[in-house]
Amino acid sequence: MLGRDALMLSLVVVMSAGCSRSAPAPIELPDPVGPPRFPVVIRKPLEAPKILTGSVDEKGNPISIGCATCHTTNPSNPEARLGTLLTKFHQSLRGQHGHLTCISCHNPDEGYASLRLADGKRLPYSEVMQLCAQCHGPQYRDYLHGAHGGMTGYWDLSRGGRERNNCVDCHHPHAPRYPTVMPARGPNDRFQTRGSHE
């Protein structure tokens, strides 16, 4: 169960990282009149994620399938939230993301192959940030102003561009709280004892 979850998480991360490198797309940020500016590139997933089936093909590669493979035939359960009510598939999908149901974000009309906004408008997975922004306005606003989310590149856009993470680079959509991590090695000062203030 846990293994499946971890796989799912890594899938999202790998996808977003992999895809964005292959085909980065510029995003329009509020741009005042001024000297020519290099683009700010936001890494984004380009297509719907795939699910690992758990089995491997003859070459030993894991087999993954698209959402529509199952969802076109299986009716969706509008009540379902994060695996709790699911009996056949996705039982391991656990997480914490408020009181959202699956179809709060996933679009059942297209066999889950796309997302949908609160007004029912279809949204490709690559535009996931718009979806997040519906509820997380302050974070999105901060993001647009460079005050949220990791980035690399140039502070001075007249000299070079910038590459930025998107929401799901860091936040798992099903459990968006930033994970607990082990910190990098701490200072190694002479005569400084560990946890001196504990």
């Binding site: 102003h145 949220h148 140039y154 502070w155 860091c170």
Partner: peptide, 30 residues
């Protein structure tokens, strides 16, 4: 014109850097 190393390393984007004299800079917005 590049970002400081500590900013690029920050995984959460807690760090905002820029030219305080530029009214359109991120740092000014903050």
């Amino acid at each position: 014109g590049r970002m400081p190393a500590c900013l690029e390393a920050c995984p959460t984007g807690a760090r905002v850097f820029g030219n305080i004299l530029d009214p359109d800079s991120e740092i000014r917005w903050v």
